[in-house]
Design a protein around this nucleic acid. Sequence first.
DNA 1: CCTTTCTTTGTAACCGCTTACAGGCTCCCA
DNA 2: TGGGAGCCTGTAAGCGGTTACAAAGAAAGG
Lengths: 344, 344
Amino acid sequence: MTTIREIAQLCGVSVATVSRVFNQPLTVSKEKREVVERVARELDYRPNESARALATKRSGLIGLVWDTDHRRPGWRHPYLQELLIGLKSALSAHGYHLLMLATSGSAALRAVGASLADPVAYVNMTRRHHLGGLVLIDSGSDAPAFAAFAQSGLPCVAVDVDVDGPQATYVTSDNVGGAALAVRHLVAAGHRRIATITGPRANRPAVDRLEGFRTAMAEAGLGVPPEYVVEGDFYRPSGQAAMRALIALPEPPTAVFCASDEMAVGALLAARHAGLRVPDELAVVGFDDIELAALVDPPLTTLAQDKAGIGVAAARAVLTMVHGGEKPEPAFLPTKLVVRASSR
Amino acid sequence: MTTIREIAQLCGVSVATVSRVFNQPLTVSKEKREVVERVARELDYRPNESARALATKRSGLIGLVWDTDHRRPGWRHPYLQELLIGLKSALSAHGYHLLMLATSGSAALRAVGASLADPVAYVNMTRRHHLGGLVLIDSGSDAPAFAAFAQSGLPCVAVDVDVDGPQATYVTSDNVGGAALAVRHLVAAGHRRIATITGPRANRPAVDRLEGFRTAMAEAGLGVPPEYVVEGDFYRPSGQAAMRALIALPEPPTAVFCASDEMAVGALLAARHAGLRVPDELAVVGFDDIELAALVDPPLTTLAQDKAGIGVAAARAVLTMVHGGEKPEPAFLPTKLVVRASSR
DNA sequence: CCTTTCTTTGTAACCGCTTACAGGCTCCCA
DNA sequence: TGGGAGCCTGTAAGCGGTTACAAAGAAAGG
């Protein structure tokens, strides 16, 4: 690897000048600048990022926290791949890279049944590696850990989790609006007895989807009997169980809005087992637009999240803070109703 | 952040001693070592990784190359999430972290229709950041770029791509063996007219699966007429088209082995459209065991890859090379036949 | 008791880059 | 023509570690 010193020598200038050429080009006379640039190119000079980070205390890296909760081995993020694509592209546009933080998983935390995202470990990593900030991706039970990160004062942005802190914000879909879209769609199709299968009460998107559901139902002048709101956990089995319960009601709903596609698929299964025809006897709407949604039978009507867009928004938010900008407000990205055969 | 120097002062020793306590503890007397360790703990000392990397030329980071090919916007890795889990856990066990390399995507490369994985850019990144090595994850068309990496002499291990180089190896499933399992399963079920829908000819796993298919068919004493081998591209539509063609044959097969679950799902669709009952009139076996496999109707018999295991193997391989070990032989992880209702 | 060897420690150079500070020039204006 | 302002440039001091080398003391061998 060629260094700044070699270039300086070859060009007959000081190392300071060479460094300036790359960092504050305007402070260097045109002639010297061009010579340095040419020589650097010829020697295929690449700045040593470690040295740079050491001198500037900035590494050009953003940390990614995404731990898998060992208590839920089957858990999968519904759109990790698209999220990463969005993150990566927005970061690379600004010359940043993503460092996937890996800790062996604190045994202590696991013992008390806590999430695997260990705030202390990750905050340490951030300082050790001069990370600009963190992107926090939830594994289903990381909200408490993320709250701790948020307090640390490091720039961080959480995805689909509600955090607050001096330099902490979050990005998620417009869950309220999305749920309302779902309800309006069902109402327009003539449904009046509409139930919902929610996500966990502790989960911000779940709460928002429920809120959107209630608001839109009220707007439509429809009542929501308590038994029409069943709590699930976003996973398929819970959706199936919840749907079974709804079907067993004396006055079962004719339509159900599920807070996740996974649960909606569960609902479809329950309907099939009960011999209900979808969408004729039961309309089902999900949320997420996972790949599976288009493939189940019947294909699922759902609210498509802007998956890559969320990644991009998260990246932008963290970069704004890294660059000293104001802490961005939480972002709520619009969702899109995708009508398929499970409703009409 | 407390530094080595502060600790040295507080302990009344030199910085060299402090540094040794952390790097070569045995060369320091027990007393001093304990004092230093205690003080370090009290001050919550964290070594500065940039300084360390600068001095040692090692950063404790492994690069992850995973570029999305903009020409195939819909492309998704069949098991990225599990792969990352495996990679991460194996790396963190050795104190390494994963750096997701992001380049803005060289316009030049895109112009010539090449893959987005730009070997030059990534090799630069490796040097700039003192990365120990690279893990290469294919986006469907990165094989040529990966071959270039492999030549660079940097430690690197590719997943599901056949590379060779001074410090390059790869890990993939035992595709030959898996395909053979599929065939034997079908033969045992009484099938004799067995066709296959392959992946792209240029793809190593695809080629291996075809080879396994042929070998096992020969072993079973069954012939494979040329029209029973149809090339697909791993995606669903190609599987559907291929299956349509097979069904249209004067003597259509009674069973088909597809080189990917996605194509197998396509095959199921084609069968359904043709009014063929699965598995009675047509047995279908896939490869991968993606989530979808268990959910289609009928659920798909398939070969489960050890997805996280592949990540672990890749991590181990790259670490071996980083630590100066012999270049590991390519690894072929066993697959498992998962029998579901699409075959019997 | 003296020499050799081993263990432990400190000194200081170095990794490659950034940047505060100061000095030398040129330019402009009184 | 003297002096202040501005522009370029170089010197050198970090950033926070690692490690070669030397030295001092302790242990071992003859």
